[in-house]
Amino acid sequence: MNSIISKEKAAAMEKEAKELMKKAKGLTAPSLLELRFKPDWEGASPMLDKAALLFKQLGNIDKALEAYERAAHAQERLGSQWHAAKHYEVIADLSRQQNRPKDTAKYYKIAGDYYMECGKPTAAGEVLARGARVLEDVDPEEAERLYYDSLDVYESSEREAYAVDAFRAAIAFLLRRERWADAVEVLMRFGAISDKVGATNTQNKSYLGAVVTWLWAGDAEAAWSTFQDAMAVDSFANSNEAFAADALFEAYRSKNEEAISSLVKSKAIFKQLDHQVARLATRLPSPASKVRRMGRKLRHLMAEPEEEEYDGEEGGGFDGGEGGDGRDRGEDGLL
């Protein structure tokens, strides 16, 4: 209970709230005595709204939840999906306060659905992303579902211009969870929607971020494939981000960890990526990745036809590093 409210005031508020709930219940039930043959939702709705607010102010979350759910139902019956959505947002937040993540996710999703029903997709996308953010630490799986629902709403309703914050939050969340493939997929989607709204700088940073993510994950082939896909976009192919990515591949192809580290530290463009992506970029190469193996893979993928006829090093079919002594075989095995 709010410590500012005196006991007498609290008792009066609780009494009023209970009376309002009782009156509202009566109005929603048919009564021959009062010649009411169908529920009076219009009369009951403001009573339920006030009762819900009073219970919330008193800190009686269980009663507040009950009142808000009935208030939301009343708004649904009145055909006011907007007000129903607002009530479900409050219910979601109260569920969060009660440490009920599944209910929190459920009610944020319901709120989003009602915003969609009343033709407010931007509000739907925002509420779904907000729900995802509050659930990131307590229920990551539900948070991920809500993020994807939010992105889908923005894209399907062609509200891409309003989706920037949701995309960035989703990407950061997936990277923190080390969901590399999913993060790259969302980065590429972010690049595509940025192209639609003319945000070329954001698009180019998204594609460079996708390359960085795969390299951090140690998947040189996926990084190169992603880069080739991005190079099909003219605005990226001629960008500083594309040149930075190309230089990064060359550094990896050299199999020299120091060269990779020096490159990312020398180019400000890597620090200008969105925060979570920039954190990976400026720490390349990843301690967990096998740089020598990645370098060999990239040498093959990046080779011109005449280079493929000759593997670029003397000494046969094994890569023995700069000295050709075969020391890398124990780490990585066959080419």
Rank of each mutant, 00 (worst) to 15 (best):
G79P: 03
V184N: 06
Q98I: 04
F270Q: 08
F173T: 09
L334M: 11
K109Y: 02
A51P: 07
Y252V: 05
V138A: 07
L335Y: 00
G326C: 02
L273C: 13
G312D: 03
D137V: 13
N240I: 00
D182F: 05
E331A: 01
K255F: 06
A259G: 06
L53M: 11
K56L: 06
G119D: 00
A245G: 05
A92M: 03
L53I: 08
K56V: 01
F249S: 12
A181S: 15
D139G: 02
R329M: 03
A237G: 11
A124S: 14
D152S: 13
G112I: 02
D62S: 12
R299V: 06
M21D: 03
K15N: 12
A44S: 12
Q57H: 07
M13Y: 02
S286Y: 10
E155D: 11
Q228T: 14
P305T: 02
L53T: 11
H87I: 00
Q75V: 00
T122M: 05
E257C: 09
D93P: 00
Q97G: 09
K15I: 01
R299F: 05
E221G: 11
S239N: 02
M47Q: 14
F55R: 03
K297V: 10
G125W: 05
I5D: 12
D328M: 02
A244M: 12
E307V: 03
R177L: 10
D93W: 01
I171C: 07
N201L: 07
A161V: 01
S6M: 05
E19V: 04
G321A: 09
K290E: 15
L94S: 01
A24C: 10
A24H: 04
K38N: 06
A44G: 06
T28I: 15
G59H: 05
F167V: 03
D49N: 11
Q75P: 00
S235I: 08
Y107I: 03
K50E: 14
E178D: 09
K25H: 09
L35Y: 08
E117Y: 05
D40W: 07
Q203M: 15
K22A: 11
S235V: 11
S286R: 12
K56W: 01
A143M: 11
A244P: 06
D234N: 13
V90R: 07
R253S: 15
F236I: 04
I110V: 12
D328C: 01
E313C: 02
M231I: 06
L280N: 14
L32N: 07
D274Y: 09
M231T: 04
Y107M: 06
D195Q: 08
L128R: 08
A129W: 03
E16Y: 02
N238K: 14
Y148P: 00
Q81H: 13
T200R: 12
E142N: 15
